[in-house]
Amino acid sequence: MAGRGRGRGQNVSFNIEQLGFGRGEAVPVSVTQPPPLFPTLENRPLPLIKDVEYEYILVTQKDLNTRMRNSSFHLNTAIEIQEIQQIHNPSYEKELPVLWNRMPTELKKSIAKKLGIEKLKTVKSGKKKKIEDPDKIFAKLEKKEIVESEGEGMCDGKEDEDEKEKSDDEKVEVEDDIEEEIDEEMDEGTDYASNYFDNGEGYLDEDDNLDEGEAQF
């Protein structure tokens, strides 16, 4: 084995010529590693255009970001709310300045505008709460019904809503945890029977989502 391919192929155990390389031709350099993940860029991107318009856009974008992030419409997750409460204001509340009369009533049902911290409480002590005194629950449910029926009577303007909210705040705070649980179990105003059994009509109901089916990376 070692004797074959003398002269040209001294380091290899076979005759180079058998592979089709003529004598004296360079053997291609052996590839010992995969190609680089980020090959050097031959064509760099063109420079960004920086004119008056884009200066304005930069400033406006930052302004917009700050405003949107601080607006009531920016919904914070539970953790974020906890953080904010720790750092800023313990009684941090956000009302949602939305035009409720233009929305389906099912969205209005939860008068408890505060999520997060209440939910967190629920999660922590959820298990415990479930074993609460049934009488207490019943009393709270009654109260809740009253509040809700008052809520349904409101059709216009968010001001009313806000006022109502301020007075109901105390009640709501206490009832909240129970409400959350009830909410999850019972969809008010919905037909339980017809929704429990999904008759499959909506199974392939993806007409609106045109982006599926394309190459995913």
């Binding site: 993940l37 980020f38 090959p39 860029l41 064509n43 760099r44 991107p45 063109l46 420079p47 960004l48 255009i49 990376f217």
Partner: peptide, 27 residues
């Protein structure tokens, strides 16, 4: 073409998971 993605040679491999991602992109 004024951002790296417009001329990137490995854009097909780029994604939110994997070796090539925007956050570790050399370009």
């Amino acid at each position: 073409v004024r951002i790296p993605c417009g001329v990137c040679p490995v854009i097909k491999m780029c994604g939110t998971v994997g070796a090539v991602q925007p956050k570790n992109c050399v370009y």
